[in-house]
Design a protein around this nucleic acid. Sequence first.
RNA 1: GCCGAUGUAGCUCAGCCGGUAGAGCAACUGAUUCGUAAUCAGUAGGUCAGGAGUUCGAAUCUCCUCAUCGGCUCCA
Length: 638
Amino acid sequence: MKQVRIQLPDGGKADFPSGMSAREILAAAGWKDLENAVAARVNGNLVDLARPVTEDGNVEPVAANSKEGLAILRHSTSHVMAQAVQDLFPGVKVAIGPSIEDGFYYDFEYSDTFTTEDLSRIEGRMEEIISRDDSFERREISRDEAIRFFRDRGETYKVELLEDLPGDVAAVSLYSQGGYVDLCRGPHVPSTGTIRAFKLLNVAGAYWRGDEKNAMLQRIYGTGFGTREELGDYLTAMEEAKKRDHRRLGRELDLFQLNDEVGPGLIIFHPKGALLRTIIEDWERKEHLKRGYDIVQGPQILKGDLWKRSGHFDHYRENMYFTEVDKEIYGIKPMNCIAHMLIYKSKIRSYRDLPLRYFELGTVHRHEKTGVLHGLLRARQFTQDDAHILCTPEQLNDEIKAITGFVDDAMKVFHFEYEVELSTRPAKSIGTDEDWEMATNALEQSLKDRGMAYEINAGDGAFYGPKIDFKLKDALKRKWQCATIQCDFTLPERFDLTYVGADGERHRPVMLHRVILGAIERFMGVLIEHYGGALPLWLSPVQARIMTVTDRHIPYGQEVLRSLLEAGVRAEGDFRNEKLGYKIREGQNQKIPFMLVVGDREMESKTVSPRQRDGENLGAMDVAGFAGLVRERCERNE
RNA sequence: GCCGAUGUAGCUCAGCCGGUAGAGCAACUGAUUCGUAAUCAGUAGGUCAGGAGUUCGAAUCUCCUCAUCGGCUCCA
């Protein structure tokens, strides 16, 4: 009888009959905690526990609480959901139902709409299916057979998926549990009873295959975990995350408003929000000057002809606003590049002048579709920390590396982790193949030189060039692009930018568009959520609030306030006739870093008693001492 | 833009099968003058998102518009 040689958990090897299931081998090999296994990994491939093992090598269990195990569990849960939906709503067609980060979904075509009550019914039916503990059975059939099978059942989406498989795929796998059969690569948990904790979360529309030209399907989102406790923790964490939502904190901390009367996607910054952005912008100017950028400023509206020349009129018009002035059409700028081009063109440039780095805190307007607007994170007017770098092709690599370094420094200053993506040529684009290739290579090489981990985002570049995107996550784990570096060989061409080289000939410079924080508004939104509103001292619009114990301490409180403001501390007073506890509570809710209590003791000794946001009382100190402490902690970025 | 849900006082939310609006907190006024997360009392506050319709009568039912929320698509 044929044998397979399998590695044991203790490091030894043993032989088992070929064709034994992965589960049997795991048990025989002496693996522990197998009741938590949802699948097996055979020589690196994830397979069902029931899959026969026919080759030598490694067989390991995949635990329900591992990353892969959870994905398998959730994927199986999505199949159970699809089964429940088809039980309860005959005629509903299934599309796709993968596991995703934090959960799973399944897309359905249904002539009616799923309601919240429907979700409860579906959950109920899922519980029944789970309690039946039906096993997940895998079988392989030919592709043609599968097409016939799903066509007979009217599952047109599955048929389309099968028909679009690459031509060399001859066989596919089907998984069934109970009476439900789905086209699926697997693996799956052994049986429906393995699913212990799940919850359906919401219904949303989703285009078939993510294309807005296709039919709108109904997507049901859910999540699942290995235990009920973990599910409970997750749901609690989601509730907590909602409390960090910048839209909520923006109101609670009195930072900004979004007002229907003003219009969607337009932000009004209140004093504290405006101060926060001023602090960020001051930081930007300082950091850019430090790195050899020139600060410039372009106009808000530019004549239509310039936008035709730049290509925006042809490729970006639907996102632009236009206005007419003295019978002339003007475009309200959606990007800052044009003025920067004209600054470059204002003189003859030598290779000795390059690189030139033009920086502008440029306010732009973009007509975003209504459905995408999202607080500060997606607005119709926003200010970019934008720069355009004009350099020789030889300087490109160093310039890109300097920018990625700048981004990395900035992310450290604001305590952010980030992800990097390289986006390549989209379908709708301008420029030659050679330029695209050269630009894409330049970006990729710089990332490699710096040893940065990145993913390729095929076809997601700007219409004028490839880009590197840096993404931050919001409180609800949605990713937002902040920094980006975009290569552009087209605009210098269109505006006929040149420099005189060492050879005395005219050459075409290369251009980089780049932002570091991205849009100040978006960055503020992510920042507010990141810190849960408790901004670090150097960013806090109000660093200290002076609180009087009784009315007789007001004159001293005002004296302290004056001294602090003079010393450069952002301070304010709470001199109301309220109890100290009430003022503290309010200050705490406002997440003010320091509360300075002034009563008889402080008035007597000419001191203040700072109470930190974490509740710690620093004891009495004089005003100059406190101002020094604030300055020092700001410098240390605490 | 598309699918779905939602829209009642500054905020959070009640308001049943249609009979003309309510709470808590916030605000304001007064009393109180208080030492590290909520002092007490009183007052005021709403074209029930907007518009049209059905009805003797609409916050409630229907339609349209606007906005918000969750997704999709798109993007900083």
